[in-house]
């Protein structure tokens, strides 16, 4: 790019006219596809953003001379675009995955976390649904710890009654109802 006394870089006319024409055409295409070609899901959004990116690239490469400039300017653009993408993408990772586990409600948190004894097909099984933390489905069962407490209570007195593990018993009620003194050495009940 070193500039001698009598040599100057002149922006070529052809590519600029080409860019202008393609920008106009792409604008028309964006409007037509978005308004008159309904695509399923987020199809229209993605298509519009892809077209916008192409337009942006054209402006940067030709109008803004990135194609004819030193590479360092392109590196600057690339890193700031990297920042933009990172910012939006990682924020959406959080917001977009909130619904993956069921939201907690006050009063639902009990000892023992998300893994619960629930009744399925007439059998008691451990459900690890929502293994990130306490999580309850529409028919809450009993937390593993609660089941263990009950079992250790039961071993001293009477055999565990299967009906007590009824799916309709709310888990937090179970937590309040079963607070025996000897929870330290409790073990999960073998069913």
């Amino acid at each position: 790019m070193s500039e001698h006394d009598n040599h100057h870089h002149v922006t070529p006319l052809g590519p600029m006219v080409f860019t202008l024409v393609s920008l106009v055409v792409l604008t028309v295409v964006t409007v037509l596809t978005a308004k008159f070609v309904p695509l399923p899901g987020s199809g229209n959004l993605i298509l519009a953003l892809v077209i916008a990116s192409i337009k942006g690239t054209f402006v940067a490469a030709f109008f803004m001379h990135l194609l004819y400039d030193k590479a360092v300017n392109t590196i600057v653009v690339m890193s700031s675009m990297f920042g933009v993408v990172l910012f939006i993408a990682l924020t959406m990772v959080d917001i977009g995955t909130r619904k993956l586990h069921e939201p907690l409600e006050a009063g639902e948190i009990v000892a023992g976390g998300g893994a619960q004894w629930v009744e399925r097909d007439g059998k008691q099984v451990v459900d690890y649904k929502g293994s990130y933390g306490p999580s309850y489905d529409a028919a809450p069962g009993k937390s593993v710890l609660d089941a263990a407490r009950e079992a250790s209570d039961a071993t001293g007195e009477h055999a565990p009654d299967a009906d007590e593990h009824n799916a309709e018993t709310p888990a937090n009620d179970a937590a309040h109802a079963n607070t025996p003194a000897t929870t330290e050495h409790a073990e999960p009940a073998p069913h």
């Binding site: 990172l86 990682l90 959080d94 993956l100």
Partner: peptide, 15 residues
Amino acid sequence: LIWGHHMFTAESPAA
């Protein structure tokens, strides 16, 4: 890449 570690008690488990 790592700003989310300020929000471990606020954001989604996957994040």
